[in-house]
Design a protein around this nucleic acid. Structure first.
Length: 482
RNA sequence: GGCGGCAUGGCCAAGUGGUAAGGCAGAGGAUUGCAAAUCCUUUACCCCCAGUUCGAAUCUGGGUGCCGCCUCCA
């Protein structure tokens, strides 16, 4: 396979070659657990889940680490608001995060370290940076000295010399005064009274945001990893600072490939808490949008491009998913019998899928292959649902069984799975089969008497109870729940 | 101001030199008492201008518009 990925570091598409053949180490920047996750997070983690699944499908052994930032001003703020503790807020949101990711069929990371559980690694990394002259302490804080680190700005394309006088907009503050350069950032913050704090050589305090990732990457995966993931909004300063810290300490390149996903926009603007234009994952899923619809919606766009969120686009995805789901549902019932060798036509589909994914994870193009594979299956599924007897025979065709198998396999790479069960779990009791049958007979009688208003009235009444009538040739009426 | 990205049919969105994937919506047809659902068919010269080329949505230059980052953010 020849996977090529856009590397933010070089701003180019590069052939992906892991450090150790056959193995891939990945670190993904996780969430700050001060609130529920929104669509932006969903988009990001779905994209990386697909990367991971594709690598596994391609035969790689993947180690995927993703952190929780559970020390942060916003968590503290939230705890103060509700009169609880930083830990309580974190625990609650971690629980919600795990549940949300599971609903979206995102594979759990192999390890999920937390800042609060990585203090030793953090402190020793800061100590090391201080010893190497890359950091300095001031009034209980410790800062990273960007001027001492050659290469600062290489990820985000920033030039320190040019940016020097560009600090005009920065608010003058006590912290700014302590810094030697406006871009210097805190590795350790001395604690204020009442705040949670940890002991350290610099006094009680807590770690800065960027250092935890550097420490966790090193502790979990080593000095150099294959792929580092995150949202495009993390490029500067977070990832830039992470690189500076890690590389200043180890002397080795932190990550060989940096991948960043585009933002989710609403009405042309980034979805964010501060703008108040966000929709949480659970609000969306609870409103009736299925997890797979959401997955399909995000995968229809390339992961690096901004994705516009609108209810119209989501509805389109929902309708699109309905068709794909029907095909997947049928395919999963056709698994009986030994699958013959993949016919040439299907081999071509498989190749087109792989070629699309190899091309910087072009999931939109890969989905086109799925839709094409799904088309005949979906049509057959619809005929079967209507009791078309000739369809049952066609479903025996080995080519179709094969096609279904391939569809299931490729959909699985994108984390798409049939949602057939979800529908039947609706709790509304509705009329019994016998009642429905009686209604249908009444309608037949009305139709025979050309009393169409009455016939339509019966049909509308049933529809209101979630029963859809389907008139088939020959005067037979089928019905479907839901 | 600095850095980066994007502009393709009604909407979303692939395509990076050879005459435009896919999804949704729409239209026509089949079917129907009418519908719904389903099936079949069908709809674009790619923001503007100039250039390179036998040939460009695709490369170069200029312009216009939009977005992200530069403070926390997936």
């Amino acid at each position: 396979m020849t996977l090529r990925l856009t590397n933010t570091l070089t701003r180019r598409i590069e052939l992906f070659e892991p450090l150790v053949p056959g193995q891939v180490s990945i670190y993904c920047c996780g969430v700050t657990v001060y609130d529920l996750c929104h669509l932006g997070h969903a988009r990001s983690y779905i994209a990386w889940d697909v990367l991971r699944r594709y690598l596994i499908w391609s035969g790689y052994q993947v180690t995927f680490v993703q952190n929780y930032t559970d020390i942060d001003d916003k968590i503290l703020g939230r705890a103060a608001e509700e009169g609880s503790s930083m830990q309580a807020v974190s625990e609650r949101n971690i629980e919600a995060f795990v549940a949300d990711m599971a609903r979206l069929n995102i594979l759990p990371p192999d390890r999920m370290p937390r800042a609060t559980q990585s203090l030793d690694a953090i402190r020793s990394l800061i100590t090391e940076l201080e010893a190497k002259g890359a950091a300095y302490s001031a009034d209980g804080d410790v800062y990273f000295a960007v001027m001492k680190h050659a290469g600062y700005g290489k990820l985000s394309g920033r030039d320190l010399a040019e940016q020097q006088d560009n600090a005009a907009g920065r608010v003058a503050s006590a912290e700014e005064d302590r810094k030697q350069h406006p871009f210097d950032f805190a590795l350790w913050k001395g604690s204020k009274p009442g705040e949670p704090s940890w002991e350290s050589p610099w006094g009680p305090g807590r770690p800065g945001w960027h250092i935890e990732c550097s420490a966790m990457v090193r502790e979990e995966l080593g000095d150099t990893i294959d792929i580092h993931l995150g949202g495009a909004d993390l490029i500067f300063p977070h990832h830039e600072n992470e690189i500076a810290q890690s590389e200043a300490a180890s002397g080795h390149e932190l990550a060989r490939y940096w991948l960043h996903n585009g933002m989710v926009n609403v009405g042309g603007q980034k979805m964010s808490k501060s703008l108040g234009n966000f929709t949480t994952i659970r609000a969306l899923l609870d409103s009736g949008i299925t997890p797979m619809t959401l997955r399909l919606f995000t995968l229809q766009a390339h992961y690096r491009k901004p994705l516009d969120f609108s209810s119209e686009a989501l509805e389109a995805a929902a309708t699109g998913w309905k068709g794909l789901n029907a095909a997947l549902g049928l395919a999963s019932t056709l698994t009986l019998g030994a699958a013959p060798a993949c016919p040439p036509a299907l081999a071509a589909s498989r190749q087109r899928f792989a070629a699309a994914m190899d091309d910087d994870l072009n999931t939109a193009a890969a989905l086109a292959v799925l839709f094409e594979l799904a088309k005949p299956l979906r049509a057959l599924a619809n005929r079967l649902e209507r009791g078309d007897s000739s369809a049952a025979e066609e479903a025996q065709a080995p080519e179709l069984v094969d096609q279904g198998q391939l569809l299931l396999e490729l959909a699985g790479v994108l984390g798409l799975q049939s949602e057939t069960e979800a529908k039947t779990t609706t709790t509304s009791p509705g009329p019994s089969d016998a009642e429905i049958q009686a209604q249908i007979e009444q309608r037949q009688a009305a139709k025979a008497a050309k009393d169409f208003p009455a016939a339509d009235g019966i049909r509308d009444g049933l529809r209101a109870q979630g029963i859809e009538l389907i008139d088939r040739p020959g005067g037979i009426t089928e019905w479907l729940r839901g």
